[in-house]
Computed example of a mutant assay.
Amino acid sequence: MTDANVADVLKELAALEDPAVRAVNERHGDDHGVNLTKLRAVAKRLKTNQELAVGLWRSGDSAARLLALLICRPKAFGREDLDQMLRAARTPKVHTWLVNYVVKKNPHAEDLRLTWLADPDPQVASAGWALTSDRVAKKPDGLDLPGLLDQVETELADAPDPLQWSMNETLATIGIHHPGERGRAVAIGERLEVLKDYPTSPGCTSPYAPTWIAELVRRREG
């Protein structure tokens, strides 16, 4: 299907629409009804196609945007392209995939991280914190970890979703990957009790930072 165009792909995605899948997704704030395994199969067949990816993104359809993020070339986007895309990604799955699959692989990731962290829009700021968490784990040199903990301690409890989730992840990531800051990270989590009572399925790790830190440290060091 190398000559696929946007209209063809949108038609195919419409045929994959499943009301049951949509109902589940809508409970999590998403607005598409395509099974993600089937979506990935379409992406595998289409292969990388930046032009098609751009066209699918511009359609505004969430399933099409998810597909676009799977077939695009992450490094082909300019800084302003990604900034505009992030601000247009208003559903959780599109937002998360854009950050994880595209922005993290783009040379403008650090510049965008700093810009988004300071943005007053919680949705945008959450992307900045997601990128910060990734850098804490992979490239911490140059980061002010005590300063990040200061900010988390001050702002986490009252932060709205999804900003609270991203800040909490950064708190846990600092505790997991940086033993020198672990005690303080755990203490902040215990004092604030953010997500302490969040329902967690069997076999999954609680998002409550002290529990998350303890479990991941046990796995890493055990």
Rank of each mutant, 00 (worst) to 15 (best):
P140H: 03
A23M: 11
V34Y: 08
R191T: 06
A159K: 02
L148F: 03
L114R: 15
A53N: 11
D158I: 00
A109M: 14
I213N: 04
H32M: 03
V103M: 10
T211H: 12
D81Q: 03
E80S: 12
H177F: 04
T132M: 14
A89G: 10
A118L: 12
P120Q: 11
G33W: 01
A15S: 13
L67P: 09
L13M: 04
A89F: 08
G147C: 06
R113T: 07
L148G: 04
A64V: 11
P107A: 10
G180I: 03
C204M: 12
D141L: 01
P199T: 07
P179I: 02
R73T: 15
E110P: 00
N35Y: 04
R73Q: 14
L143T: 05
A159D: 01
E80F: 04
S59C: 07
L67V: 10
L82D: 05
A89H: 10
E80W: 04
N25Y: 12
P202T: 09
M85T: 01
V54K: 05
E17M: 08
N49I: 07
G55V: 02
E12C: 05
T48N: 12
K44A: 09
P107F: 04
P199Y: 01
G142V: 05
I188C: 10
V102P: 01
V152S: 01
R220K: 15
G222W: 11
V136S: 01
Y208T: 07
E12S: 12
A214K: 15
D81K: 09
D3V: 14
V99D: 02
C72L: 05
V6I: 15
R182F: 03
R220F: 11
E153I: 00
A130Y: 05
T170I: 05
P19G: 11
A14M: 06
V152G: 03
L46P: 03
D8R: 15
L114K: 14
T48A: 14
A23K: 14
V21C: 10
E153P: 02
A43M: 04
P207L: 14
L192R: 10
L117G: 12
R73I: 09
I176A: 08
I176T: 13
Q123G: 14
L112M: 08
G175E: 01
R58M: 10
D8K: 14
A88W: 01
H177A: 09
R220T: 07
W116M: 09
L143K: 06
I176M: 09
A118H: 06
R220S: 13
T37C: 00
Q84C: 02
A64Q: 09
I213R: 02
Q50I: 05
P162C: 04
D161R: 01
L69Q: 03
P210Q: 05
L70Q: 14
L39Q: 03
R22M: 07
P207D: 13
A41G: 00
Q164P: 08
D134C: 02
K75W: 06
P107V: 09
W116S: 01
L216E: 13
T48G: 07
G203V: 05
K139Q: 11
L10S: 09
L171N: 08
E26R: 15
G55S: 08
R65I: 02
V102R: 02
V54Y: 00
T132D: 06
G180D: 12
R27D: 08
Q164R: 15
L52Q: 09
A41I: 00
L112Y: 01
L131G: 10
K139G: 00
W212E: 08
K38R: 13
L13G: 00
G33M: 07
P120A: 09
K75Q: 12
G175T: 06
T37Y: 06
T2W: 13
A130Q: 13
G29K: 11
